[in-house]
Design a protein around this nucleic acid. Sequence first.
DNA 1: GTTGCCAAGTTTTTT
DNA 2: ACTTGGCAAC
Length: 830
Amino acid sequence: MAEDGFEAFEAALDEVVNPGKPEPGEPEGTDASDPLLADLTDPQREAVTHTEGPLLVLAAAGSGKTRVITRRIAYLVRNGIPPWSILALTFTNKAAGEMRERVLGMLGDDPSPTRGLTVTTFHSLCARLLRRYAEQAELPGLKPNFTIYPAADQLALMKRVVRDAQLSTSNWSPRSVLAAISNAKNELIDAERFAADASDFYSKTIAKLYTGYTRALRSAGAVDFDDLLLLAAAMLRDRPAIRAECLGRWQYLLIDEYQDTNHVQFVIASLLASGGQSRESNLLAGLPGVEPDDEPPASGEDAPNICVVGDPDQAIYGWRGADITNILEFEERFPSTRVIALGQNFRSTTPILANADTLIRHNKRRKHKPLFTEREGGEDVEVLRCGTEHDEARAVVEWFESLGEDGSPADREGGLKGLAWRDMAVFYRTNALSRVMEDELRSAGIPYVIARGTAFYEREEVRHALAYLRLVANSADDVSLLRVINTPARGIGKTTVAHLQAFASANSITLFEAMRRVSDVDGLSARAVNAVTRFVEMVDRWTGAGKFMGGEVAGSLGELGERVVRESGLEAMYKKQAETSGSEADEERLENLDEVVSSVAQFESEYAPDADPAQFDAQAPITDTPPLLSMLRAYLESVALVSDADAIDPTQGAVTLMTLHAAKGLEFPAVAMIGLEEGLLPHARSNQSDEMLEEERRLCFVGITRAMRRLTITSARYRTHRGMPERTIASRFLEELDADHTRVRDRDDEQMIDDFDATPTAAIGGSPMDRQTNDLAAQFPEGATVRHPQFGVGTVVTVSRGRYARARVRFRDVGEKTLILEYARLTRVN
DNA sequence: GTTGCCAAGTTTTTT
DNA sequence: ACTTGGCAAC
C-alpha cells in the first residue's frame, strides 16, 4: 500500500528529468536578480516562491533543503506576510534555533521582521498549546502546571501501575507495556478506545494498564512525551474554538523532516493547516454547541498554505510510528498539492554520492530518484576492516590526525588545507560504541564532543535536583516527590512513606497533601512526624506555601535553584560524599549540581515570555500565574524536551561523536562511520523484516550522505559485547557499496606485517588487545577453557598459529572439534 | 531506618 | 561491563 505513496515522486521526477517546463502556477516576474532567489536552481526557486496552497517538497540528501526552507520563510516575510502568522516545525530544538538564526540573517539585523515567528518542535508547540488552553479545553485531569515525565519517570510510574494491578513486572515488563502504549498514542488511540478495541487477553491487559497509567499520570499532574501530541491533537479536534484561534493566527505552515512525522503529528498538522475560506467556517464551527468536527474541509478550492519537506530515503524513525503513508495521506488530504523534487546534491563529492546511491538502490520498497552532482573528483570512500574495536578506534584517530590541523600530504598536494577538528565526525549505530572511541580520542589528545544532550539530565544528582524543582512547580508530582522525599536521608523511610501513601489514596489526596496532614496519619512515630513536617515546611518556604509570593520566596529563578540545591541538603550530601571518598566521580557530581544552578540562571537570563508560541496576544499575560512559577515551568519543559542533537555546538573546535539518528540533517567535511557489522548495522533487532532492514539501510544512507569530502567506513573483526569478546561478521551493507568508488583495506594484515618488521617478538609487549589483534591463536592457548556459541564449554587441546589458525577443542558435551579461530565465535572462559 | 553487598538483567535508535 | 534492585546486617 505504501507503494502508492510513490506516485507523487513519479510526477515530481519528471520535473527533475525534464526541467525547465514552466509550471502553470509559477508566479510571474520571479526576478532572477532577487538576492533571495538568485543563486537557487529552478526547482529550489519554485519551492521558495510557491507560497500559496499545499506544497510537498521531496528533497534528496544534500539538495539544499534547509536553504529552501529558510529562504521560503524570508521570502514570505519580505512579501508582507506577518511573521507571527508563520509556523515552522522542525525535528530538534537545535534545528529550530538555526533556522530562526538563518532567517534573521537573511532579513538583516533588525529583529523586528521575525518578531512572533514561530519556529519550534512539535513537542514544544504542543506543550505550549496545552498549557495555554488546558483550562479552557477542560481536558480531564490536565492542569496548566502539568509536569512532563521523561523516560525514567515513565518507567518508574509504570512499574508502580503494573504492581498495583497485581501483575508481575517480569511477565509485563514496564518497558514493553510502555512501548505498546506509545504505539497506540502515536496512532491517536487513547486508553478508552484501546480498551474498546481490545479482544484478546494480552490487549485487554495492556488496556487495563493503559488506563491505570493514564490515571496515575493525571493524578500526579503529569503527561508523557506522547501525551503532548495526543492531547494537543485531541484538543484541536474537539475544541473548535481553540482550533479556530490557532487557525486564525497561523496562515503559513511549514514542516521539516516530514518523512519522520507520525500519524498524530500528521493530524496536528492537518488541524492547524488553515486555508483562505476555511477560516471563516472554522470560526463558525467554534461557536458553542457545535459538535466536534473531525474532518475539516480541505478541498482544492480551500487549500491551506502548508508546505512539507522530506525525503523518503531518509526515513529512519519508523519504529517511532513514522510512516511513508504520511506522504500519501498528505496528497489525499490536500488534493491540490504541488509536488517538487530537489535532486541535485550540493554537499558531497562524486565517490561519496555514488556509494550512497548504490547502497540505497538495494531498497526494494522505494522509487528510485536520481541523485546527481556537478562536482568533479574527490577521494574514494575508504572501507577499513580492523581487528578489534580498539584497533578500529585507533584507526579513526590516526585518520583524523592525518586529515588534521596540518593537513594530509594528499590533501596538500590536491591544494586542500588540513581540516579542523570541528570538521570531523564519528557516527555509530548505538550509543555504546562511543566509549572506545572516546578513550582513544582522549589519549590522543584530540578534543571531542558527544551529542548526548540528554545524558546530563539523566545523571542521578541532576535528576534529584530537577525532581526538587518539579515538586516546587507541581506539588502533585508524586514521582518527583518520591524521588527526593528521603534524599538526602532525613528519616522518612519506607514504612513512613507507605503509611503516607495509604493515607493519600484513602482520602484521594496527593502524597504531598498527605504529608501536610501528617498529624492525621496513624501509626507514625513522633520522629517520623517531625521529619515529614520539616520537609513540608522546607518546600513551603520555597513556594511561599504554593503562592510564590512573600518575603521568603526567591526573587529570581536562579536564586530559587540555588536555594533548592543548598537547603534540600543535596549539596551537603554530595560534598560529604566527595570528602569521604575523595573520588573524582563525586567531585563531578558536585560540579554537576553547580551546573544545574547555572543552567537555571542561564535560562532565566534568556527567557523571553513573548517568544512563547502559545502567546497569542503579546499584551495580555497567558494566565495569572506568578512569573517565577511560569518561568520555572518553562525551564523544566525546556529541560524535558532537549534532544541529543541539541548538544552540538559547531563553534567548538572538537570532533563530534553521535548516533546515526542524531546525525540526520547535519554535514561534515570528514566522516567516519564505525561498527559496520551484522547485528550492529543492520542492528540485530531490526533483522526481523524487510521493512526494518530497509530502514537500517536508510540509516546507513543518512550516514554516508552527511560526508562532504572524505568518508571512512570501518568494522572490527572482534568486538567486546557485554564484557565478552565476540567474533563479528562484516555488514552486508559493505557489499552493497560502489566498488568503483571504494578502497577496501584490511588493517589487521597491515598491522601484522608492520609489527613483525618492527618487533619480531610482537606477541610480547603492547596491550592484551594488541596481541589479540595480531595473533588470534595467542588468545586461546593450549589448556584454555573456551566457550562456543553452539558447542558450549570446552578445553583447547592443540592450536596452530597464523592467519587461519585452527584449534582442536575438546568440548564437555559434544566431544572434540577442530575450529578455525577466524570464524568460530570462541570466547575465553575463566 | 540506613548502609552495603550480591545477583540479575540489560538498550537500538528519540521527542 | 555496568547499573539496578533485593536483601541482610548494622
